[in-house]
Design a protein around this nucleic acid. Structure first.
Lengths: 210, 210
DNA sequence: AACGCTATACTTAGGCC
DNA sequence: CGGCCTAAGTATAGCGT
């Protein structure tokens, strides 16, 4: 329960990641808003969740801010770009290059999933693939095994408890045939305790004297 | 020198405002970055200082994110934007849309490879998969876990057996004695119940005649 | 999944260079 | 403007519900 310092890297556990996302997303939004208010700045924030959901904040008009950003960043690129036209072409070119990359990556990915052999890939691509497969299967499986173990352990202790109970019961019956069964407990030391230290006889609503 | 809680309103003092701006701007940027890394989200942040200076951060391509935002928010603006045609004709937009599709597809792919989609599978299916996947899953650790599980299962069945026997014994003794164990509750209010309010004696399969 | 809690990690106001 | 410092104020990880 002691909060740990966390590494800034992708959170493995899906649920935890979603929870953190929703918490931190609100956090960032708040910060962005505060910045805008406190310092009279214009702020736009766009967030896409891993599942593609969109969240955004902007201190004024998002469109306006984006427009302004586009103009300004063009200007700051200004080291004598041959022409605006060319630059536009460049962004398109960049996009299409990225598209190409993604397509190739995707192809590798599918190959991997369908178990095709990787003979045709070169070293670089193999390295990339290695990074992409972090032994997820192993970890999922391990988790399952661990869960099963803990479940079994719980079962075991329950059974043990019940067992002890029954034994005691049998013992008692043998010893005290025909006696009176009062509701007092004269000897605390005979109190039946389970592994948790609780007096189980209480739970049964039974009391036996001897 | 005692730090005050600050109001979220424009800071009057110019210098203080600038200092705060620069500090908080970095703060927000960092948060945005962390969000993107931790939660596998795409984040774009645009900030204009009051003096018009531009700062920005984006987890991937700012252009792509803005494009995507534009499309997505148009979609949520619903029907018949006249700009739809225009948008389709915009080659950058089209490229970026394709890129986005690929990215999403790739993400799904990677998710599958990294095991997130395997959470729903049961052990048998996992074992099957294990045989299909080349990476050495026959780790010592796994074997140990499996051994522990089988041990626990053995224990469990032993206990169950023993338990059943004891119960039988108890039953038998009760019947053969045919006696009354004064546990009948003349006063319901005296029934001791556990914290859940259940009468546990039932759960133990014990019966007392009266 | 969203909300509440609490201890702890992180951010940052206010100083001073 | 950017660093460094400290104490105060906030955000949030890890729980439970």
């Amino acid at each position: 329960m002691v909060r740990q310092k966390i590494q800034i890297k992708k959170i493995d556990n899906l649920t935890a990641r979603q929870v953190t996302f929703s918490k931190r997303r609100r956090g960032v939004c708040k910060k962005a808003q505060e910045l805008s208010t406190l310092c009279d700045a214009e702020v736009a924030l766009i967030v896409f969740s891993a599942t593609g959901k969109l969240f955004h904040y902007s201190s004024s008009s998002m469109m306006q801010l984006i427009e302004r950003h586009r103009r300004q960043s063009e200007n700051s690129d200004k080291l004598g770009q041959p022409s605006l036209q060319l630059q536009e072409n460049n962004s398109c070119g960049m996009l299409s290059k990225m598209l190409e990359d993604k397509t190739r990556e995707l192809r590798n990915c599918n190959r991997q999933l369908s178990g095709e052999d990787l003979q045709g890939l070169d070293m670089d691509e193999l390295m990339k693939l290695e990074k992409m497969v972090p032994g997820g299967l192993n970890s999922v499986k391990n988790e399952k095994l661990l869960k099963e173990i803990s479940l079994l352990k719980k079962k075991e202790s329950k059974l043990l408890e019940e067992n002890a109970m029954l034994k005691q019961q049998a013992d008692f019956m043998q010893k005290s045939e025909g006696t009176v069964y009062g509701i007092h407990q004269s000897n605390p030391s005979e109190c039946i305790r389970n592994s948790h230290g609780y007096d189980t006889s209480l739970r049964l609503g039974l009391r036996f004297s001897n």
